[in-house]
Every structure is written in structure tokens, then in C-alpha cells.
């Protein structure tokens, strides 16, 4: 359940950003969570919704989560491809295992909509 700690860290960050921008409340938060980030999205949502109630700036904040697919680039033939295989993906073109991750590890706050 590292999602609870991550939700608490997120609350600290959102509070800081909201205060810096003189926001009265945070309406929505958009997150990008990669398929290989290791986050259980439902757990994060649950933890955030339970914890936010104690924070006046955040107690009605809705979070929207975009799940980012796992995309690799092959270092051998430069082919890029999407996969669900988080363990041993190989390039569908040349079968090489020498790959670079282009996306799928994200764990980001993209933006927030605030009332000022």
C-alpha cells in the first residue's frame, strides 16, 4: 500500500501549488500513471479520496487519471512498439532485447484546475 504514502505526498504538493497560486480550492487534478509505474490506480484513488476530506483546499477535488501505455524503442533497428509485457519484451521486428523505454513509467501530476 505505498499508494497511501503517494497520495499523502500528492496532497502536500497540491496544497503547496494551490497556495502559491492563491487558489481557493482545487477542482480537478490530472495525473499520468504509466502502465509500468507499479501503482494500483484504484488504491491511489481510494487513498486520495479518503485523505482529502481533512484538507479544505482539496476536499472536493476530483482526480482524473490517464494510464500511459508501455512503449519501447528498439536500440537495434529503431522500431518503436507498444506492449503489455513488462518482463521480457523483445522487438517484434528484429527480436532484439536491447530496448529503451519511451513511456510507461510515468508517475506525474500533469495539471490542476483551481478556483481563484
Amino acid at each position: 500500500m505505498h499508494e497511501v504514502s503517494i497520495a499523502m505526498g500528492m496532497i502536500d504538493e497540491l496544497t503547496r501549488i494551490a497556495r502559491e497560486n492563491n487558489a481557493r480550492k482545487v477542482i480537478t487534478v490530472k495525473l499520468k500513471i504509466g502502465k509500468m509505474s507499479g501503482i494500483v490506480i484504484d488504491s491511489l484513488q481510494f487513498a486520495f479520496d479518503a485523505a482529502k476530506l481533512e484538507y479544505p483546499l482539496l476536499n472536493s477535488t476530483a482526480i482524473f487519471i490517464e494510464e500511459v501505455p508501455l512503449i519501447y524503442e528498439c536500440n537495434n533497428c529503431k522500431n518503436t512498439f507498444k506492449t503489455d509485457d513488462i518482463y521480457f519484451p523483445s522487438c517484434p521486428g528484429c527480436k532484439s532485447y536491447n530496448l529503451k523505454i519511451l513511456s510507461g513509467e510515468e508517475l506525474h501530476i500533469e495539471n490542476l484546475e483551481v478556483e481563484v
Binding site: 501549488i17 506525474h108 478556483e115
Partner: peptide
Amino acid sequence: GQGGIIGETRIIDVNESLLKSN
């Protein structure tokens, strides 16, 4: 509407890690 918004709203781009405080 939702949450009883009475002021102006705006979008703040953040683009930072959820683990930033750690």
C-alpha cells in the same frame, strides 16, 4: 456547480513527479 465554485477557474500546468516530496 460541482463543489460550489464561485470564483474564476484556471488550469495550472505542473508536470512533476507524484513522489516529489520524497
